[in-house]
Amino acid sequence: MDSFNLFLQFLANGVVNGSGYVLVAVGLTLIFGILGVVNFAHGEFYMLGGYAAVTAAYFLGWGLLPTFLIVAVALGLFGILSERIVFRPLAGKDATNAIIASFGLSVLLQNGALLVFGAQPQTLRLDGMAQTAFQIGPVFLTGQRVLIVLATLVLVSILMLVLRYTWTGRALRAMAQHPMVAQISGVHVRRVSVVTFAVGAALAGIAGGLMSAVFMVQPTSGSMLVLKAFTVVILGGMGSVGGAVTAGLLLGIIEAMVSGYLGNELRDMIGFFLVIVMLLVRPQGLFGRITERS
């Protein structure tokens, strides 16, 4: 019974961390799937979201929802800005250019954050209920951790509905499937590009804000996370939102189990190991489709 309780706790830990991966990876996979841009600065969107939340909470002192609304808007705008300044001028050129530019943006943002916010870790203080730890059966959790899972659930559901049923969502999917045909059918490419970056950055930002309450935020917070998010994207299938959700949760849970049963030092390794295996066995990922390109 004791070992089963332990298993439940590991599972809960995995779901919490996995939810964070999902929020970051979904934006990453959208940007990749729709625009073909490999964005290494995505982890910095996450990091900036953390700082946006801390700053907004510090200066405005509003409640949870307004704070995260500000984070979403701020990071959405930031996503649009980086699309306009960094990625749009490179569109249509060799994809390597955008990869290198995104690396540059990542270094720039990390060091910029170090200058502005300093190296000290900051934490988002959520009052009341969110701070307290509680116990469900044998599983220990905090309000903040539950909040991450709930927020992921809500945001991903909304995203999937938007992609499925709205005109914008259809335009995004059309772009992902075949840019040229989408363009011929009247999809405004630039608008799609802007919307994708805005949504991707806003999701990463919200993830960063939520995580800053639990794990604190530092200028380097995003650097490992973006690699994890990439493994999630590859495992789930490049460009597949459903794949990113499944693979994100799965990676979180696998990491928790590995660190619980095998040894914590193996935790960061396992994701990358799985990616190599996946690329060898099923290169298109769990949910990816092999598409014939003419």
């Binding site: 332990l6 706790q9 590991f10 830990n13 919490v16 961390n17 220990f140 639990v214 794990f215 604190m216 380097t220 650097s223 490992m224 928790a256 660190s259 619980g260 914590n264 935790r267 960061d268």
Partner: peptide, 11 residues
């Protein structure tokens, strides 16, 4: 750079 110690601590 690890920040989550729940699994280690539960163990």
């Amino acid at each position: 750079d690890e920040r989550d110690f729940y699994s280690v601590l539960t163990k």
